[in-house]
Design a protein around this nucleic acid. Structure first.
Lengths: 104, 104
DNA sequence: TTCTTACATGCCTTGACAAGTATATAGCCG
DNA sequence: CGGCTATATACTTGTCAAGGCATGTAAGAA
């Protein structure tokens, strides 16, 4: 772990990898097959994700199977929390506004 | 708008600015007073936040008052959504595990 | 108008990072 | 062992962003 989940996930390719892993664990080669990037590039992204605790690996012969570890995302969710009520208020205001224009 | 909320908020100083603005609108000088950065640096971050639709400005004489526009954060929240159930499952598993070790 | 305040923008340097190519490492198979 | 497969790491290059300093600009004050 070295960077925040937010910093790590600023990279679109890394978000892509996580999205792919949402369907279950995958090998590196499998991921490469879905990602117009070379194998070393994907391996490096996986390294960053691993250091951030966002994925986990196990060895299967020569292959490495990666899977999501969602816990760090909870931290991101927590950061977002205080803002959630802010945009709920915005929506409320919009709603009240629409109610005024088109009552009932 | 040019970058995703995630990319924009990868920068710690920009997260800091948003956190400060959660207390209500502030002038640039006010923000600078809270942020070991020079005024130009803060202004540039504000520019990026503005381009991403994350803040809004109004002029008050020579001052500019910035406030949060939380809508783009909803997009981030939406990305997070499918993962939320993943870590809830993790927590469930942990819970069941603890129940086993210390039942009742 | 001139000065001052509050902020934005331009330019420059520096550091970080992403991606490619080449190479190392480790496990399987014959 | 020798060769093949799957992945990781080293090295290099190009790009880009953050931050500082200097300067531009607009609005009040004198």
């Amino acid at each position: 772990m070295s960077a925040t989940a937010m910093e790590v996930l600023a990279e679109p390719s890394r978000r892509r990898i996580l999205d792919l892993l949402r369907g279950g664990e995958r090998s590196v080669g499998d991921l490469v097959g879905h990602m117009r990037l070379t194998q070393p590039a994907v391996s490096k992204h996986l390294r960053v994700l691993r250091d951030a605790g966002l994925v986990d690996v196990t060895a299967d012969a020569q292959r490495r199977l990666y899977r999501i570890r969602p816990e760090p995302l909870a931290e991101l969710d927590a950061w977002l929390e205080p803002y959630r009520k802010l945009w709920n208020e915005s929506l409320d205001r919009l709603e009240r506004h629409l109610d005024k224009r088109k009552p009932r």
